[in-house]
Amino acid sequence: MSKRQHISATVNGDPVEFLAEPGATLLDALRDDLGLTGSKEGCGSGDCGACSVILDGRLVCSCLVLAVEAEGRRVETIEGMAEGSKLHPLQQKFLEHAALQCGFCTPGLLVSAKALLDANPDPTETEARYWLAGNLCRCTGYDKIIRAVMDAAAELRQEKV
């Protein structure tokens, strides 16, 4: 077995260090080494989006990023989305709109939706649907998720005014 590599990165603003097996994914490192189990593994092949994180400002499937690639980079996960016990507007709107049932895809969808609103604060419904097309949800039919994202976008725009 090949040797593990020492990795230093920033996760949700905090410096972290861990030892990565050469074949381990960033998702493995987050979940198994750093105890951040909010990012989920639904497929391991980048098809379901449940492991979505933001890497240096870019939305990625953490199951498709090697853990060693995180060296020196900034990772944002679901665990960093709320400020203390104050929920991000997206999180709040997901709750108000009942936009989750089992909740398993929810962390990935929230991270993905945040990346959307960071890039495009005023998306159309179609833009939101295509942006979130990489995040599978099997429970909701997406209706309430899209409503929650659009509502959160409106609130965030209001906050900026």
């Binding site: 909010g38 997901f94 989750l100 909740g103």
Partner: peptide, 23 residues
């Protein structure tokens, strides 16, 4: 009525423990 679900906050913050989350 339509109250916020009682297990909701854990599920939007990544705290909820699913089958693979226990160590």
């Amino acid at each position: 009525t339509r109250p916020v679900r009682p297990d909701g906050a854990d599920k939007v913050t990544g705290k909820a423990m699913y089958g693979a989350d226990l160590a």
